[in-house]
Design a protein around this nucleic acid. Structure first.
Lengths: 168, 168
DNA sequence: CCGGCGATGTAATAAGATAACGCCATGACC
DNA sequence: GGTCATGGCGTTATCTTATTACATCGCCGG
């Protein structure tokens, strides 16, 4: 375990925000959304969702797998996690960050998802944005090319405000 | 090997365009660019670049590896290919498509690279675009978040015109 | 000539993801 | 309650993608 100034493992650790609240919120929203859709948010899936929400950093499937194994006290197979993640992604509760092969909780499940992220290369945090201008620009150029969009992916790598301040 | 109506392996196979010309062009540009920068486009790297350009589809590192091994008549190690790809990506001669874990030749090396692609999920072709509106929108929202951009990634999955026509 | 550096070779392994198969719990239906 | 279909989950094996560590080669400047 490396020291990490941006760790969000504990409560109230990032910008003083109460991350436990983030998690609780996410789970509540997920419960509601799944109930509404008749989707089964099983104990396992809920557990995986909670682990994804352990921080605001994208987490790899195998990192989640380790956590899960530890919690359950027994080894879990990769497939178990992948299946849960697949469900969560399908229902828009979790996004996959392609450029990191990692997963992150969705900030606004249920709403339109265009999957845009600002990913800090220093601290690893990823902030979900949903900018209508970007969405519009993508729509326009796709139309100009006669291209039918199914899934736009925008992942902007760079440095977040906090990390810029720390290394000026 | 599966039959592929969109294969661009042979000359003049995609939309009647002379793909051999694409490859030759790409190599010429690469030579010029590297000479200009004092970068060493070695035989190996040049070979890998040529293999990347074998089609307009993003190709996996291991696919390139296979081609390379076959050409050389002896097994090549993955690292060989990865190192060459790293060089090519660094110099903007090749782009990595994150959502596919694959590589594709850059259409305009030397120019500004914002790395935007329209990726067809049916035929596998990827078209590089560089839309100023998307670039601007990303710049704007990043600025609004105080986020310093180092590498924007835009990969739009969907269906290209040709494939739409074929399955209406 | 030779020291150094960048490029390549070799081997091993990590990390990420999926395929194939089967069991079991749940819930619809009789 | 019994029965059946479905979906979720477990197990094992395997595949793809990527990297780490270390050795060697060859070119170029001094």
């Amino acid at each position: 375990m490396t020291a990490d100034p941006h760790s969000t493992a504990g409560p109230a650790s990032r910008h003083g925000h109460d991350h436990a609240h983030c998690i609780a919120d996410a789970l509540t929203r997920a419960d509601a959304l799944c109930a509404e859709r008749g989707a089964r948010l099983t104990a396992l899936r809920r557990q995986v969702l909670e682990l994804v929400w352990n921080s605001h950093k994208p987490r790899g499937a195998y990192a989640i797998l380790e956590d899960l194994s530890q919690r359950e006290g027994k080894a879990t197979a990769p497939l178990t996690v992948y299946r849960a993640l697949e469900f969560l992604v399908e229902h828009g509760l979790v996004h996959r960050i392609e450029s990191l092969n990692a997963y992150i909780g969705c900030a606004a499940p249920g709403a339109v998802h265009s999957g845009q992220f600002l990913v800090c290369e220093t601290c690893g945090n990823a902030v979900e944005i949903d900018d209508p201008r970007i969405r519009a620009a993508i729509g326009t150029i796709a139309a100009e090319h006669g291209f039918q969009v199914s899934r736009p992916t925008v992942e902007v790598r760079g440095t977040c405000t906090d990390c810029q301040e720390k290394t000026p």
